[in-house]
Design a binder for these strands. Structure first.
Lengths: 246, 246
DNA sequence: TATGAGAACTTGTACAAACAAGCGAGCACC
DNA sequence: GGTGCTCGCTTGTTTGTACAAGTTCTCATA
């Protein structure tokens, strides 16, 4: 069942994206929307809260909400899965496993994924036929068998794991910085050694908080950009002093 | 006045950060918390929603909320202002204007900041005595006079502008990618030309949605990392195909 | 021992009502 | 003409209630 406030949010979002509510304009008041949709004010509030969280609208006490932007933001799945992101954007994409092996977990890894063996996989993902991303993923022992059963050119690991063992990636933590390309990175991405790469290190867990994987993803510059919209009172991105530990 | 749910959120957050609620543990149910704080369930719900939005806790229907992480996330001010961020982290920091001049707005800039002249400022920010950030900021015409009045070694531009003209930065959009250091970047940051830099391009607006500035900030690698935590149903960071237009 | 139904618990959605607090326009006054 | 105040509008906070929907554990049954 889809919630009422989601439907209302969808409708309002569509108006913003279509330009019916241009950037800079004021949204109708909560009471007006409540009347229009025949819903309680609380429900409408939840709906507009969605838009505010997406960065489409801005809100402050006493004044009407204003439209801040008209760009669609992505779902968790699209952020997590290269394949789902690329597909949603209408891009041509692919993937290929370069190397894959089991090994004992390092101290750092066992702190995140649990003790025992881990499965390390090196993949290259391409966009529009060009390699843009080197993915070094380390899977926890309990998912390793399922990952090993995947074909080397598996398009979407996320979807394949869901289909095979019902695994759902639910939470992620991401660290973003820049590094210079190592010899292997350079070769795989077709850039010079030492050229800049955008690095995204992530750890993903299931609903229950059980860690599934950590990954070191390196993007060729110019291929991908991360984007966030924030406001006073609501912002998710943080900046950390780098300590160069890993 | 501070809202009740904020106080409750503060208390719960403190418990998580202190380790009284370790990562992976379950939070008390809403009814338990409601009783403990003598508040309605709705109020408690708002409080835990804050923690979920901060990425500290995870939530799904039917199951108890679990603690996901124990790292403090930052306020908007800390993300926006280098000075406030550095101060909150207890770092030694500084800043210095290298160059500053007015010029007509480019087509790209007048689309964001409005027509007319703009003020371009080149700053270097340092952390623990070392230069870590080159900031190329372009201010809209209406804030230019206030910016020009600032001293060259102004520590916090954000705070100074608030004090002098009551300007509040309320909304921001951020694009993050990696670039290689140009000759000027390299000289100012003390790195080799071509070495990787983490770039954050941002546009900031006031409460009313009026654009104030756009900036191109370049961080020395290893000095600063961006971090976000996300989940199914709530994630603010997006990935964009790079089009190298600017 | 496994399986399935069920009950208890927990979070999600929706409505209604009331008051607090901030904003902005309009108006009176100097 | 400008200044300051008031009033209406709008969003923010809080409480209470009811039901929907998903999870987890227990217990009876095959």
């Amino acid at each position: 069942m889809v919630a009422r406030y989601e439907l209302i949010a969808d409708e309002l979002r569509a108006e913003i994206l279509s330009g019916a509510q241009p950037v800079g304009s004021q949204l109708p008041s909560e009471s007006e929307l409540a009347e229009r949709f025949g819903a309680a004010r609380g429900t409408v509030r939840q709906a507009v809260a969605v838009l505010v969280a997406e960065g489409l609208a801005g809100s402050r006490q006493g004044a009407r909400r204003i439209v801040l932007g008209a760009a669609r933001s992505q779902s968790f799945a699209e952020l997590h899965s290269f394949a789902q992101w690329a597909r949603a954007g209408g891009h041509r994409f692919g993937g290929q496993v370069i190397e894959q092996r089991r090994r004992p977990a390092s101290a750092f890894e066992s702190a995140r994924l649990g003790r025992g063996e881990v499965l390390e996989v090196l993949r290259v993902r391409s966009l529009e036929g060009e390699p843009v991303l080197v993915e070094r993923t380390v899977y926890a022992e309990w998912v390793a068998p399922a990952v090993e059963r995947l074909p080397a050119d598996c398009e979407s690991v996320t979807e394949a794991l869901y289909d095979s063992i019902g695994l759902v990636f639910a939470y992620g933590e991401h660290l973003i910085d820049a590094v210079s390309a190592g010899a292997q990175d350079a070769k795989l991405l077709g850039v010079r050694r030492g050229s800049p790469l955008l690095r995204q290190r992530r750890t993903t867990t299931t609903h229950e908080g059980r860690p599934v994987e950590t990954s070191d993803d390196r993007y060729k510059p110019g291929s991908v950009t991360f984007s966030i919209r924030n406001s006073i009172g609501a912002n998710p991105l943080t900046r950390q002093a780098g300590d160069l530990r890993f």
